[in-house]
Simulated scan of single mutants.
Amino acid sequence: MVEAHPEMELYVGMDVDPTALEIGRGHIEAFLAGREANGGELRAYTHVKNFKYIKQVLGSLDESLAVGSSGVDGILIDLGMSSMQVNRSNRGFSVLQDGPLDMRMDPKATLRAEDILNSWPELEVGRILRDYGEESNWQFLQKQIAKAREMGGLHSTGDLVKLIQRKCTISKGRQGWIKTATRVFQALRIAVNDELRVLEDSLHSSFDCLATGGRLAVVSFHSLEDRIVKKTFLELIHGGEADDEEDDDDNLTLPDIDDEDEPWFNQRVQGRNGIVLTKRPITPSQEEEKLNQRCRSAKLRVIQKA
């Protein structure tokens, strides 16, 4: 982004994972070195913080950045895991590699997936699988997890995967258990990091920090996240609860926008506090999916502050 916008004067990067931030900081420093050699000026800062603390972070740099019309021009929130996190078995995110049942985005956090599976009430574990993983066989898995506690508990991703594999019939094959395991791992990761509540808080805080005409763009990777982004965007522009009809993509009757400079959106939702620029989310093109298969589930939504 900083390469595409030479007019940028201030860049602030935030990530709750210090490893991800360290990698990003390396790229930023390399770019800044080249930019300074060419006479460009850009202030860049990185913070090991969740986006729900964006007001605190921006306020520490300049109090005017965290409020109203003097805020920032653009914010991008990229949700979900990175390939780096998935590929490191010691983080506990991968269904294909054995590792600890961790799943913490923030290594300093205390709650781990192992704690939920072995200590939380059985009904609460079932609710997590149902609501956060959208797993149809959550009741059966809930009972199997409870039985596993009697045998000493679940202490590695391999233990959990084996439990799931026993649940899946032979007819479903490898893809059957992988899909189930992916949903279960997603559910536990969301619960460990309280991701959905944090997302909603982050959207409100980020919108507050935008300057007039500023934009907030959010990339989500599963339906639960996208649903919250869509609903919260509508609430933000209307200053309250999202209208039921406007919350339904198929019922929206909105004007087309003919803008050659921004052909990436076709319709918008106008509210007194802003505009949702993406009636429907923008999804990856076939060319993008060829470059990165993991982007295939990504959805981009953008809101602009009035």
Rank of each mutant, 00 (worst) to 15 (best):
M1R: 00
E7S: 00
L10N: 04
A20Q: 09
G34T: 01
E36A: 04
T46V: 13
H47S: 12
I54Y: 01
S64P: 01
L65T: 12
A66H: 03
G71E: 06
G71Y: 00
G74T: 12
I75P: 05
I77D: 02
L79C: 06
M84L: 15
Q85S: 02
N87I: 02
R88W: 13
R91N: 09
T110R: 10
E114R: 14
E114T: 10
D115Y: 15
E122N: 08
L123Y: 14
R127V: 01
R127L: 01
I128C: 05
E135D: 04
W138I: 05
K143P: 02
Q144V: 01
I145Q: 09
A146Q: 12
R149S: 07
M151D: 14
D159P: 05
D159R: 10
K162G: 08
L163I: 08
Q165W: 06
S171M: 11
K172C: 11
R174K: 15
Q175F: 12
T180V: 15
F185H: 06
L188S: 06
R189H: 10
N193H: 12
E195H: 05
V198L: 09
E200I: 10
S202T: 12
F207K: 06
L210W: 02
G213V: 07
V219G: 00
V219K: 01
S223Y: 02
L224K: 00
E225C: 06
R227T: 11
G239A: 05
G240D: 03
E245R: 11
E246Q: 13
E262P: 00
P263H: 00
P263S: 04
Q267W: 00
Q270G: 09
E289I: 14
E289Y: 08
R296K: 13
A298T: 05
A298W: 13
K299R: 13
